[in-house]
Amino acid sequence: MRYLLYLGCVIPTKQYAYEVSLREVFPKFGVQLEEFNERCCGFPLKSINKKAWLYMGARVLARASELGLPILAPCNGCHVSLWETKHQMEEDPYLKSEILSYLKSEGLYKFDDVDIKHPVEVLHDIIGLEKIKEKVVRPLQGLKIASHPGCHLMRPTDIPRPEDNANPDKIDRILRALGAESYDYPDKGGCCGATMLPFSPDNAIKVGAQKILTMINAGFNAATTSCPYCMEMLDNKQDAAKTITGNMEVSLPVFYLTQLVGLAIGIEPSKLLINLNMSPVDEILAEVGVV
């Protein structure tokens, strides 16, 4: 299993815990990650110029096509964006030839033969729950973890999505394989609010806070995501959420899924950059005896 590690914008410039935990965990399951220094997939700028967004995505795919390997896109935004680029070009040959003309000027000719995977897919569909279970040495017993797939892991369903929009349960099953408890809850497929940040940070944070409260009300003592934007909203901005909503109960330990897999298979918390999680993760890990 070899993939081009396409980190996008947010992971390699800020969300280091995701990159580091991914690089720690995946090789342990025999997944080889190749360096792939490509630039923005266009997702954050789709609202500025759709054609530019398609061109940017197609360029990333074309570079991967040259190297002849599938892409591993750990960011939900990149993952949906690259699939959508492929899909839209298939639907619209006229648009495709226009985008190809830009790529040709950069010496790139082909982009539609590249497969794009998300870590959740690799863990669940390719590595498989049995292999994960075999490696668990520190079961996450006592942790009731809410899965937050994030919008674009599930929608839109007219393009291949790792999670089922009506019944997203792959992350839950991975969590159970790690020894933790996980179950459905209201608004599981709800939004973290990240895309609203440039327009209105306060209201965006309110959306994230609401999602955290829903998880707490459903009886969870932790949560997990595998999207850098969702992590930023649900974990990094928890203190801000307390201030903005005036509700001190907006407090829940949040982990990257790759961090939880790492903890369960015995990797030291420091190697998974647990000290970058701003939510109260240390207490819960001590409580359940993981650290």
Partner: peptide, 12 residues
């Protein structure tokens, strides 16, 4: 319009 989070629920 810039308040849209592009969560795609409406589209779905």
């Amino acid at each position: 319009i810039w308040a849209c989070t592009e969560c795609w629920k409406c589209g779905q």
